[in-house]
Simulated assay, not measured.
Amino acid sequence: MAETIRRPGLDPQGFIAREGSLARVPDAFRPAVAAARDQLSAAFGARLHSAYLYGSIPRGTARVGRSDLDLFVALREEPAEADREAVRALGAAVDKEFPQIDGVGTLLYGRDRLLSDLERYDLGWFVACLCTPLLGDDLAEYLPRYRPDSLLARETNGDLALWLPRWRERIAAAEDTEEARRPLVRFMSRHLVRTGFTLVMPRWNGWTSDLREMAEVCGRYYPERAAQLRTAAEHGHEPVGDAQVLRSHVDDLGPWLAAEYTRVHGVKAPRPEWAGASTPAGTR
């Protein structure tokens, strides 16, 4: 009988295990987390449904002076522009006060959207599996458990083809300097590696948030793209300001990945914001 392979990131029943915890937050980052928690509570009061950490800090892999503080905030109603300005100001204040973090990024949504059928296998999954509760009533209690299947793959990253034209616009609008290109390289490299991983996630049957491991896993199924994916993972950690890297992302690796994703998993259910002028939240 063939041995059953148990992949990382799953619980004994084969569901994706929630990653991260407050206990894993490195000591150097605890003051910044505490300040963010207190300021979120003060800023939104009873309108705040819940708040979460995600990313390297609750996973315990953050690097002092290099990692950002990632926050996910759920309000009891849909946020207004004033709410978005409030989290931008909060993030700037925390970033200025604590040199151990390299920026603060905050995703802000209303509770009803996060629990909607449309977002159940995207934002809902993100909260339930990749976010660590910081304040309030945990939305994961109202969401299902998730397996690393094709439905999850489609609804998390099956919209890359829609992103690519907007990426090209961002590249064209950026200043022609290495400093201006570096954050674009970091952002797009991470998005492509994560999309490559979820492309093969159902076959691999596991979960990881480690960019290098994501690239290696995808490269096993697409060896002709393995070197590109490994390089993109490195640029996700240590970005360069090379215009050629950006061109390769939007003219080669990105279009191939978008087409293969559609072939294998189909297209993500459309979101209303794609039809309007607003820009959806960035890759998570």
Rank of each mutant, 00 (worst) to 15 (best):
L199F: 01
L257P: 07
D27G: 07
W204F: 02
L164T: 05
A227S: 10
E213C: 12
F15A: 07
I16T: 02
L118M: 14
H237G: 08
W125E: 02
E97Q: 15
R84E: 13
A93F: 11
D68G: 06
L71K: 07
A281Y: 13
Y109K: 11
L246P: 01
W167D: 11
I57D: 03
P202V: 00
R194D: 00
A23W: 11
G14Q: 03
V87I: 13
D117C: 09
P239L: 03
V33F: 04
T195L: 06
T177E: 08
R120A: 08
L152S: 02
R168P: 02
L10I: 00
G110K: 15
A172P: 09
R194A: 02
A232T: 01
A233Q: 00
F29I: 02
E213R: 12
G276W: 13
L114Q: 11
Q228H: 15
D70V: 09
G158Q: 07
A173T: 15
V94Y: 09
R59I: 05
S278L: 15
E169F: 10
T106R: 07
A80D: 12
L192K: 07
P270Q: 10
L90H: 10
S189M: 00
W256E: 02
D149H: 00
G60H: 13
R186L: 00
V104G: 02
A92M: 15
G206E: 02
R145K: 08
I16V: 13
A32M: 03
A275M: 15
L143T: 06
A42Q: 15
D70G: 04
D176F: 12
P183K: 00
G20W: 02
D176G: 07
L108P: 10
N205V: 06
P99F: 04
H49Q: 14
R37N: 11
L53I: 03
P255W: 01
V267A: 11
R84Y: 10
R203A: 08
P202Q: 00
E119T: 10
A23P: 11
N157I: 10
C218P: 07
P12T: 11
A34K: 13
H249M: 12
R271D: 14
Y222M: 03
W167M: 13
L199V: 01
W125I: 08
K268Y: 10
A93Q: 15
T283L: 13
E141K: 12
R111F: 06
G136A: 11
G136S: 06
R47K: 13
T4H: 07
R84N: 09
I5C: 07
P144Y: 10
A258P: 04
E19F: 06
P272E: 10
